[in-house]
């Protein structure tokens, strides 16, 4: 069996689904960030796959952008988590429910 693009794409889909599931069912803020990271990297994998398949460099360039963006997102996200932890002594996002009427 040769490893073709479809395998990478399936892996990418599986990773993305795991990320979504983590965001939806996990309550810890850190895990939530990690799940988001997972989804982003699933996207990266798909980009790389397509770049390879169609022999185009743009996909790889996008991946660099996304890695940079993910780093920034992680920095902001962790800062929020720390501020939230100082306030509530917890990192449970279900306690972060003040943003409503």
């Amino acid at each position: 069996m040769t490893v073709g693009p479809q395998h990478f794409l399936i892996l990418s889909a599986v990773l993305f689904t795991l990320g979504v599931a983590g965001v939806l069912w996990r309550r810890g803020a850190i895990r939530l960030l990690m799940s988001i990271e997972l989804m982003l990297n699933a996207g990266n994998l798909a980009f790389i796959t397509f770049a390879r398949q169609f022999d185009q460099a743009e996909g790889q360039v996008y991946v660099f952008f996304i890695i940079t963006l993910a780093a920034a997102e992680a920095a902001v996200g962790l800062a929020i988590v720390i501020a939230f932890f100082r306030l509530r002594d917890s990192s449970d996002v279900d306690e972060l429910n003040l943003l409503k009427w």
Partner: peptide
């Protein structure tokens, strides 16, 4: 409409999804 506004991040994420 305000009933949809639970304040829970994961609910928003679900709707988003």
């Amino acid at each position: 409409v305000k009933l949809f506004q639970t304040g829970l991040v994961r609910n928003y994420a679900l709707v988003f999804l």
